[in-house]
Nucleic acid binder design. Structure first.
Lengths: 248, 248
DNA sequence: CCGACGATTATGTATATACATATAGAAAGG
DNA sequence: CCTTTCTATATGTATATACATAATCGTCGG
């Protein structure tokens, strides 16, 4: 009612009111104090409680609704939602960063490179309509002296023409593409396979050994850009995804 | 400057200004028209362009910043961020729903159930401090007549006392827990393994065959609630995660 | 008893205004 | 030429107000 800005009248210590309302409410929900279905206070009640304007409360509640913690119903109020089907933010880093996080020296090696007209298989992988030029790459990523990951990549040269002139001897295609091509969508497919001979040799493991395969397809503004298949030897890699619903 | 509400003066057709600004700008960024590093118009310029108040523009830009598309710098303006390390929203559904989506009849079977004092291994899996009662479950999920997934679960009875009285013969522990326990965090670990004898038998595959293992640990307000390990035969399962950065 | 209808109410969206705050860049000083 | 100080500027947060919209609830008539 009186103060403006981030300095708060009473209990607050430098945190914005917005933040305080957000954390207060999400804490009550996550701790279970406000069970699913529970009606949280009306905007005008929170307005009185926090001694602030309705807009401030409204912004905070709208954000909680967008984060999926509450559901807002006109005329009825805002209600705690039932826990959602679990979703996790899966971050897939640059392999170099991943390897270096392990404290091991990283090395990249380009095994093969071929510019060709897209085959039917290429088009299926890229979800490409008409045939066009693509660049097929095969690479290895090392952690120390051990092979860490095997990479098979297709780049749609219609979408990224400049890739045709790049040898990819020193730079891995991943980091090269990131930062050069804005991407609008990506799809991951994660599965376990038995290593086929070719890949087993590249990873220095036995044929038939279990491997984790991560495939990623990337689009930029409706155009398919690239398809990658990373193969990791089972013991070398675990994907970790952590999720906290309060996406402040 | 003149109209209020969702009805728009000129071009808009029922969409809120907020939404229109959001989609206009993110489209320009994702299409590459505004490259990384590019300074997007100042708030006061957008205010003039959309003939609206600064607050409306500010809310939209703040949202884009929170979504990671732009970076805002005081005194300097707002800039298109470089494409981030790719992150995907990985949704892990109820297995029943997954199976039924395949058009196959779902069946659940509880193989074993044991209430015990947590062993050292249990405590490591749950990240539990002091020893306490836990419930260990082993289950199978079927798609048609074929085993689809094998489930090994630990439930921390200190956190969820009521689970002690549940036999889990008809209901799988996943759906039972969801909706009963609010959860605040989850961690997934995904990896490939060779099937050990016990699990190979349960899944009706050969020992040593590659399997996809998804482990999930769940907390509720700092208390570990449950640890699950799902094992899928390689050919039966692929995790798919799709991501579009415009998280409207 | 039931269905139509209008009043009430909580949220949704937008405006205009005010002051805070970080900082890039210009001006002043050594 | 380098450093310090000042100022202008763009964003950050909050207020008070206004009107739109959807849905619930009570009322009234058949």
């Amino acid at each position: 009612m009186s103060t403006i800005g981030t300095v708060d009248a009473d209990g607050g210590e430098g945190v914005s009111l917005h933040q305080r309302i957000l954390s207060d409410i999400s804490e009550r929900i996550l701790s279970g104090a406000w069970a699913p279905g529970h009606r949280i206070p009306f905007e005008h009640e929170l307005t009185a409680q926090y001694k602030c304007s309705r807009m401030t409360v409204n912004k905070a509640l709208s954000q909680l609704a967008k984060a999926g913690l509450i559901e807002r119903r006109r005329r009825s109020g805002s209600f705690v939602r039932r826990p959602q089907s679990q979703a996790a933010v899966l971050e897939i880093h640059d392999i170099r960063i991943e390897v270096e996080a392990l404290g091991l020296p990283y090395r990249y090696e380009r095994v093969a490179r071929q510019k060709r007209r897209s085959s039917a298989e290429d088009r299926a992988l890229l979800e490409l309509g008409p045939a066009g030029p693509v660049l097929a790459l095969e690479c290895r990523h090392f952690a120390g002296i051990r092979p860490f990951a095997h990479e098979q990549r297709l780049i749609n040269l219609t979408a990224v023409a400049e890739a045709a002139d790049e040898a990819f001897l020193g730079t891995a295609p991943g980091p090269w593409l990131i930062g050069r091509v804005p991407w609008s969508a990506a799809e991951h497919r994660i599965r376990a396979v038995a290593a086929e001979k070719h890949i087993a040799a590249a990873l220095d493991i036995e044929a038939g050994a279990p491997c984790l395969v991560v495939e990623r397809r990337t689009w930029s503004a409706e155009h398919p850009v690239t398809h990658v298949r990373f193969t990791y030897a089972a013991e070398s890699h675990t994907l970790v995804a952590r999720f906290t619903p309060s996406r402040t």
